[in-house]
Design a protein around this nucleic acid. Structure first.
Ligand code: MN
Ligand code: MN
Ligand code: ZN
Ligand code: ZN
Lengths: 153, 153
DNA sequence: TCAAATGATGATACTCCATATCACTAGAAG
DNA sequence: CTTCTAGTGATATGGAGTATCATCATTTGA
């Protein structure tokens, strides 16, 4: 099977092959990699899942008084490493985090990003240029980590 | 005249209409807006012009011992406001700065970015997604500030 | 030409985000 | 249970960027 393109407009990710969206269990993804399903992690994941836009680490921390600051940052880093969360660097220097529900592109692709997460990236690209941005369009060609590994064999 | 697209691959910006690259005098751009052409500003601009990639503020500061830290940040901010420098937020949280030599898209477009500046933006977009990025393509549609203002009339 | 006015500079202090430390807690395994 | 260790949270620390302010430089125009 060939690699497939993912088109990203300024609102939502659009699949090119119409395959069904297949959400990922974030906590399960952690456990599968040998991490523990702790209460703070569940709280952070739950908060990210109910959000409909990217969140700053500080916003997460403030909304979860029972979870320590350090744990918020640690958990975000962990979720980034596992790949179930996206980091969006904003032009003002702040960073937003949001869910990444991904299924491989080689084995039946659909990659879906919550509104307000990856779609901020093109906005950042616009802001990095002179003049007034009118429109933008980004295409990413990707594989999942597993299939990329297969490809290397 | 219609708006025109600017295609950005992962190396260089490609103009779609073949118009000639028209560099901008950065210091002149400052003076035209009522700022002064001081020695520290000339030094920073000269350093940015001879660089062939994006630079961090700290790198600029360290390479210019005669220029104070605060002035480096102030000058960068000023160059950003004037629009002759691009800010590229990197995935690791650092920021790179590089020249933006721009000519309007409506009145005869060519926008050229130094290698290593805007072309980092698609890389950041890649890094913000799960899995392995294979390729990317970004198109920006823009106008200059002046023509955008005309459009609003 | 010279003096007043204002813009710009640089040392320093400070703020804010993120990380490192470390004693302690709680989940996993037997 | 008991043991073992990953994980937690309070705190200290680090680093990037900003605010302050006394001093300096450039402009203006008398
Ligand atoms: Mn908290
Ligand atoms: Mn310096
Ligand atoms: Zn796959
Ligand atoms: Zn124009």
């Amino acid at each position: 099977m060939n690699k497939q393109d993912i088109s990203v407009n300024n609102r939502y990710v659009v699949s090119l092959n119409g395959l069904v969206y297949q959400p990922t269990n974030l906590i399960a993804a952690l456990v599968e990699r040998g991490h523990r399903a702790t209460a703070p992690r569940k709280a952070i994941v739950a908060f990210l899942e109910q959000a409909n836009e990217g969140l700053t680490a500080e916003a997460i921390n403030e909304k979860l008084p029972s979870v320590g600051r350090a744990t918020v940052y640690r958990t975000i880093k962990l979720l980034l490493e596992v790949g179930v969360v996206c980091k969006i660097p904003m032009m003002d220097g702040s960073h937003l985090y949001g869910l990444t529900r991904s299924v491989c592109l080689l084995c039946g692709a659909m990659v879906e990003f919550k509104a307000g997460t990856l779609n901020r990236s093109p906005r950042a690209a616009d802001a990095g240029t002179p003049g007034q941005p009118v429109d933008h369009h980004i295409e990413l060609t990707m594989t999942c980590d597993y299939c990329r590994a297969d490809e290397d064999k």
